[in-house]
Design a protein around this nucleic acid. Structure first.
Length: 635
RNA sequence: GCCGGUGUAGCUCAGAGGCAAGAGCGCACGGCUCAUACCCGUGUCGUCUAGGGUUCGAGUCCCUACACCGGCACCA
């Protein structure tokens, strides 16, 4: 029976759709999951959504929509993003699923039965954004949340508390005895010092909300969102309703999380598990942030990359490759479009793409479009290449198991470069001229076999490209089942005689004009901000329509004569003919952009434009609310 | 303020005491022409942040300083 491997990403809040920074976690987790499948593990990759937050209740009350409907929408969007990025999770757990609710309640009950949950009267400051309580001392001078600088709320209610303090020593011992439990080291140190400062019991229920999971002891109390969120790692593998599956997969081999939630996963969660008597996850891996051009990604500030847009522009694999190759998974990294293009062109287009392309074109031309049969290997170029290829899987295995994806990819691309060098050394085009078919066959076979190695090894990181390489080589693209890492133990696994596919550049070079930004067009808020000065540049004036007529040969255009006051008349062209009859406009007061650069539209001069509200299927001319003198400034 | 990390070629980074300091990108020159103006080769550039110390020998260990980053605390 296969060895199991259970890995999880965190489950993002449903507050907003993930940006590319958030996606880093799923991309890394996915790479590990795919690698483990390739290594013939029985993998279970869990992700999901965290929905029981107080914020959901607030937000949906404001928007006047049903919380569940709201969550459904966000979750759908989230799953679309994961699909675009090719995230191969095995199950998506939502914390509003019944199985999760029951699991959380069961968990709560067990902890209670073990004496680790007690009721106490709670008075304190609560920050909704943090979902956390603060003691007086922790607030800022003017009584604001130290993180969000927002007004916390005074909450006074009876809550259930979890005896975290009881586990302080046990936790400390555990982390000390298991040096790899928290990775990387820096996070481990942080957690240790946090524990050493002393752990306090924490409140795990709320009385003030109707959204969320009722505690089993008192239905008026809802389980604190963090307490139930962590339980997803159990409910997602059937703790309550698929015992066998749960037994098989628990404990998790690794929880992959962001550094902002390290404390919950490295301290609270292990203590909770100790309380109910379940084994602890084997490790928690804390990854860093991906910044954008040096700035922290933030949707609210408009500094982010929309994963879907990025994928649409460049494909999922180049994005995945860049992040995994450029950013050590445990550290913070930076996404820069300039460096993205540099990496893409150098590694993917020039090295890998071109290696495939030139190999195929040589092979196709010379061997009737089929994979040639190799003869004896000859001399250094051959043995050198083969040795490197055969040594690669172990290196990749080591790096990937340590989640050092950047090093794994670096090693793989050494082979890519070696492949290109091999072609130059052996000069197959010369061999063709010399009619040395035997040697030529061997050389090209070696190139193709190298590509088979590469395709298999990059498949966890760039699944689509791996498939495409194999398709072009005439191999089945569905190889993960039949062909795994074992097929890289010896040279020559590639069968001869297969008809090669059509060579086509898999990574077309990205041409960047000087000064042009390669970033995909995005509609961020930041892009929409203009300064007051920007706005003042626009000269808006009230004008009156004197005459209007359709422009011949144009469905949408009207020619208008307008009176802009101060004895000035102008001709403008407006694209509203589909929604207004010319006669209806005459005498109407409108708002005119008076200093717009003149233009010739359908041969008609236009000296300004009128303002109109544009919706999906209507255009409505903007008019002053009351009568004003012509030429009045609008601002 | 406390704890931790980082500081190596123009850029991104590898180098956990020992042959004359490396890779990729960039740049220059040369080669090739199968290929996505690509590939291959050669070369270019470093007071390894600064100062002190340990050692036969230090990017590599210790101390101090500076800069940047992170965690925690505190002040506002």
């Amino acid at each position: 029976m296969k060895e199991k491997f259970y890995l999880t990403s965190s489950i993002p809040y449903v507050h907003q759709l993930p940006h590319l920074g958030n996606s880093f976690e799923l991309i890394g987790t996915d790479a590990l999951a795919r690698y483990k499948r390739l290594a013939d593990y029985d993998v279970f990759f869990l992700t999901g959504s965290d929905e029981n937050s107080l914020n959901v209740e607030r937000k949906t009350r404001e928007l006047n929509i049903d919380p569940q409907t709201y969550c459904d929408q966000i979750v759908t969007g989230m799953q679309e993003i994961w699909r675009a990025l090719n995230i191969s999770y095995d199950y998506f757990i939502r914390t509003t699923y019944e199985r999760h609710i029951r699991t959380s309640q069961d968990f709560f009950q067990r902890a209670y039965d073990n004496g680790d949950i007690y009721k106490d009267f709670y008075k304190g400051w609560y920050c909704v954004s943090c979902e956390a309580f603060y003691i007086e001392d922790e607030l800022t001078e003017d009584k604001k949340c130290p993180i969000h600088n927002s007004e916390p709320e005074w909450v006074e209610e009876e809550n259930y508390f979890f005896r975290l303090s009881k586990y302080q020593d046990k936790l400390l011992q555990y982390i000390e005895k298991n040096p790899d439990f928290i990775q990387p080291q820096i996070r481990r140190n942080e957690m240790l010092s946090f524990i050493n400062m002393g752990l306090r019991d924490f409140s795990i229920s709320r009385a003030s909300t109707k959204w969320g999971i009722p505690t089993p002891l008192d239905p008026n109390q809802r389980i604190y969102v963090w307490f139930d969120a962590l339980v997803n790692y159990l409910s997602g593998i059937g703790y309550i309703d698929e015992k066998e599956k749960f037994e098989r997969y628990w404990p998790a081999d690794v929880h992959i999380i962001g550094k902002d939630i390290a404390r919950f996963h490295c301290i609270y969660w292990p203590a909770m598990l100790m309380s109910v008597g379940l084994p602890l996850p084997k490790s928690v891996f804390v990854h860093g942030w991906v910044h954008l051009e040096g700035e922290r990604m933030s949707k609210s500030r408009g500094i982010y990359i929309d994963p879907t847009a990025a994928v649409r522009e460049y494909g999922a694999d180049p994005i995945r490759y860049f992040l995994l190759r450029e950013v050590p998974f445990g550290s913070d990294g930076d996404f820069s479009w300039q460096r993205f293009v540099a990496r893409y062109n150098a590694d993917l287009a020039n090295d890998l793409g071109n290696l495939l392309n030139r190999t195929l074109s040589l092979a196709k031309r010379n061997f009737d479009g089929k994979i040639p049969k190799p003869a004896e290997q000859e001399g250094e170029p051959d043995t050198d290449l083969i040795e490197l290829a055969l040594s690669l899987p172990a290196k990749v295995d080591d790096c990937t198991n340590r989640l050092a994806f950047n090093n794994a990819l670096e090693a793989i691309f050494e082979l890519v470069r070696r492949g290109n060098k091999y072609i130059d050394e052996t000069a197959p085009w010369q061999l063709a001229k010399e009619d040395n078919a035997e040697r030529l066959g061997t050389v090209l076979y070696n190139c193709l076999e190298t590509l088979r190695f590469i395709a298999l090894l990059i498949s966890p990181f760039m699944p689509e490209s791996a498939n495409e390489i194999r398709r072009q080589m005439g191999l089945s693209d569905d190889f993960s089942e039949k062909e795994n890492l074992d097929s890289l133990k010896t040279w020559g696994g590639l069968p001869s005689g297969i008809t090669l596919g059509e060579p086509k550049p898999i990574f077309p070079r990205i041409q960047v004009e000087t000064g042009e930004k390669p970033a995909p067009k995005k509609e961020t808020d930041a892009d929409n901000f203009i300064t007051m000065d920007d706005f003042r540049k626009v000269d808006l004036r009230v004008a009156e329509v004197l005459s209007a007529e359709k422009i011949k040969g144009a469905d949408k255009l009207l020619r208008l004569q307008v009176d802009v006051g101060h004895n000035e008349e102008r001709q403008i062209v407006a694209g509203i003919a589909e929604h207004y009859e010319p006669d209806d406009l005459i005498g109407k007061k409108i708002v005119l952009v008076a200093n717009l650069q003149p233009a010739k539209i359908r041969g008609v001069d236009s000296y300004g434009m009128l303002l109109a509200a544009v919706s999906k299927n209507d255009i409505v001319v903007v008019a002053p609310d009351k009568d004003v003198p012509l030429g009045a400034r609008v601002r």
